[in-house]
Structure formats: C-alpha cells, structure tokens
C-alpha cells in the first residue's frame, strides 16, 4: 500500500487515453446523445460545455457506466494496451481508475467525512469481512494504512477540522469538496467532475479551481469536467468540447471555441 505521492514538475499533456467514438444514447424518443465523438489526452483538463439539456451529464454517465450507450464505442488506454467498451458497468469503470463527482452531491449523508473518503478507497481493500469482524492483524493494519492515505487527501483539501462530522450537517461548498475527496481517494487516472463549481460563491469557486488544478498538477490526473461558468472553463481547461441537443458542435482550445459561430449561436440563440 503506497500513499499517492505527488509527481514532481508540472505534467505535460500526453497522448490520447480515452476516445469516445460515435456514441449515441436515447431514452425512448428523446435523443440525449447523437453520434458524439471526442478524445481526452493524458494529464489534460478537458471541459464539456453546452446549454442546459445538451447531454453533458449523460455523456459523463456513459463514460462511467451509469448509463449504457446504445451505439458507439469507448476506448480506454491502460498502459500500452487499449481496452474497448460498448457497454461498461459502473463497478468496472471504478476498477479501471475512473472516479467522478455528481452534479447534485451524491455523498453518503449519514457517514462522517472520513468514512466517506475511506469508502472511496474500498476497491483497494483486500481483507474479507471475517478478518474485519475480528479486527485482527491484517484487517487492522490495512484499515490504518488506508486511514493514512485518507488523511493525506483531507490535508490536501484542507478539511481537517470536519473529518469526524457527518456529511449531512456540512454546508454545500464543503460537501462539494468532500465529494472531490472521495473521488480522489480512489487514486483515479481519470477524474470526471460534473459541475464542481455549481452554486458556489466566488471564493469557493477559486478554492475549487485551485484544487482541480493542483490535482492535475501534482498527481497528473486526467480531468474531464462539465462547468457552466465560462470564466472558469476558459481559464483552467486545455481543450473544450461543446455539445448542443446531444450533438457535438465544436471541439478545440478555449480560444477556438470562444470564437466559433456555432457555439455563439447555441448559447445566444439564432434568428430563424
């Protein structure tokens, strides 16, 4: 068991690690995603933006197996090998190193901050329930080792003072931060953030941006994020993909996207 160590030096954006190819998803007659393709490079901060109902959250849900796409493939690089999925389930996605946060906080409300973060490490725990019931040797050692790792994350996110507080009692901004902590606890290679700054005030947004960039810098985690605050998106992301009505309408650097006519039309509306 190793505690995640920061990787020295800023991470350079590398090769493609995740490729989404022609993914389509519909609920009955509603087409949530139509033939969407894009890719994500290693160590990059990749934003998905678009007006309400554009299919952004659906896209993330497909990526970690909460929804199952009807068409298309997702290819994920594992070291040198590529793994191809038509259909992933969320347990499998977690095992492959994909972690995420939710738009409407999905923390375990009755549990403390520490327990929530420890839950994020469940896939790394090896002892069976009998050993845990006896709290003997290996189970205790494992629990303490993971406690150490969880504390690193608590330090990183500056939430030491609330580690024993049940999450349900925390204010919204801190809950968002704890949810990020739970996702980080899994030491993901790919982190999916669904509106991490929604409903936050300026200071909280700045804090969250700092954490996102720090995660990206220190741990080299690849990040895909959905965000409505354009200032934030243009500031922190390397590349942006724009969805509208389930279709991809633009893809490129923040500057390219900002000046794209289709994007402007989608956001501001266009005279017919």
């Amino acid at each position: 068991m190793t505690v995640p160590q920061p990787i020295a030096g800023a991470q350079r954006v590398g090769e493609v690690v995740l490729a989404v190819e022609n993914v389509s998803l519909s609920f009955g007659g509603v087409k949530a995603l139509v033939e969407v393709s894009f890719d994500v490079r290693e160590h990059e901060v990749r934003a998905i933006i678009g007006p309400n109902g554009a299919g952004k959250s659906s896209m993330l849900n497909v990526l970690n197996g909460v929804y199952h796409a009807q068409k298309g493939t997702i290819r994920l690089r594992q070291g040198a090998a590529w793994r191809e999925f038509h259909d992933m389930d969320s347990h499998e996605a977690a095992a492959l190193g994909i972690a995420r946060t939710f738009q409407n906080i999905a923390l375990f409300k009755g549990m403390t901050v520490l327990d929530n973060i420890m839950t994020g490490r469940n896939l790394k725990m090896r002892c069976n329930f009998l050993q845990q019931a006896l709290w003997a040797g290996p189970a205790k050692k494992e629990e303490l080792a993971h406690r150490r790792a969880a504390e690193e994350i608590i330090d990183f996110l500056e939430i030491q003072h609330i580690r024993k507080t049940p999450v349900g009692r925390l204010p919204y901004g801190l809950q968002k931060r704890v949810e990020l902590g739970r996702a980080l606890a899994a030491e993901p290679t790919l982190l999916l953030l669904d509106e991490p700054m929604a409903g936050m005030n300026l200071e909280e947004k700045q804090d969250m941006c700092r954490f996102v960039l720090d995660v990206n810098d220190h741990y080299g985690t690849t990040i895909v994020l959905i965000e409505h605050d354009m200032g934030v998106v243009m500031d922190i992301s390397d590349r942006v993909v724009v969805l509208d009505y389930g279709r991809r309408i633009a893809d490129g650097t923040p500057d390219e996207v900002r000046s794209n006519q289709a994007v402007i039309d989608a956001y501001l509306g266009v005279a017919h």
Partner: peptide
C-alpha cells in the same frame, strides 16, 4: 468491528446513496 471497517462502510454507502456506491466501486 465489522461496522467500523470496510464492510460496514459499504453497507452504509448502499443505504445512503446506491448510485454513488456503485460508482465508487461497491
């Protein structure tokens, strides 16, 4: 002992929010 270790946390996670529980790999 069981409820304060991994199995107990998995139980509570399933109780509190089952979608999130499966997303973290339970």
């Amino acid at each position: 002992n069981l409820m304060r270790s991994e199995t107990g946390r998995a139980f509570m996670a399933v109780r509190d929010m089952d979608v999130a529980a499966s997303v973290v790999g339970i």
